Amino acid sequence: MDKRKSVVTMKGNPVTLLGKEMMVGDIAPNFTAVTKDLKEFTLKDMEGKIKLISVVPSIDTGVCDLQTMTFNEEAEKLNNTVVVTISMDLPFALNRYCAAKGLENAITLSDHREASFGLAYGFLIEELRLLARGVIVLDQNNKVIYVEYVNEISQQPNYDKALETVKQL
């Protein structure tokens, strides 16, 4: 298994990312996560659509909330695009969050069972068993068009660049 050290920090401290680093041009691997309703969800469930995958450590933190709500608000403006937020949060926490926030335009997924997404896309933090912050955009054929592993987990991703990439597709 690939291990990448000092790529990402949390409060200035380096953490280790597990899994293959995704690069522009790669074909995205399949993954299995769980919806807030406890149903399995895979990359294949978004077949034929553009995918904006927003990766957050925990939905219950301020920066993760801002990231999730920002992409949720933009989702309805994007054509043929599925917006997904994925974290290691339990499905029950995701369900509570979505109900409290009125989150309707994005899909929230939990990677808690097997860290399938985290390992396949290189976002799993070894020391914390959380996902690092980032964004991945896939085209209709699951080719990686944009990828961002945010250097410092407490910082926000580049919303404008990710959204601009989706709009160009």
Rank of each mutant, 00 (worst) to 15 (best):
V137L: 08
L18S: 04
L103N: 04
L17V: 09
A115D: 06
G62P: 07
Q140K: 15
T42D: 02
G48F: 00
L130Q: 10
L90P: 04
V137M: 05
L109T: 00
K11Q: 11
A100Q: 13
T16Q: 09
K161Y: 05
K44Q: 06
K5W: 08
V63T: 15
R4T: 14
D60Y: 12
L17K: 05
K51V: 15
N105I: 05
L169M: 15
T42S: 15
S6M: 08
K5N: 12
K77T: 15
D65T: 15
D60G: 10
P29W: 05
G19H: 03
T81I: 05
D26R: 04
V137N: 00
N79G: 01
K36Y: 10
N142I: 03
T35K: 01
I145C: 13
K3T: 14
V63D: 15
A132S: 15
K51C: 14
L38T: 07
K167V: 14
S110Y: 12
T9Q: 06
F117M: 08
P14D: 12
N95L: 07
T165K: 03
V135P: 10
I107N: 06
T61R: 05
A120Q: 11
S6V: 09
A93I: 13
P29N: 07
C64H: 09
T85W: 11
G25S: 13
P29M: 05
L138V: 15
F123P: 08
E74P: 01
N80A: 02
R133N: 09
S87G: 11
L90N: 12
I125V: 15
M46F: 14
T68R: 05
G62T: 11
K161E: 15
V24G: 00
T9R: 08
M22Q: 08
N72M: 04
T16V: 13
T61Y: 06
L109P: 00
E73A: 06
E74T: 02
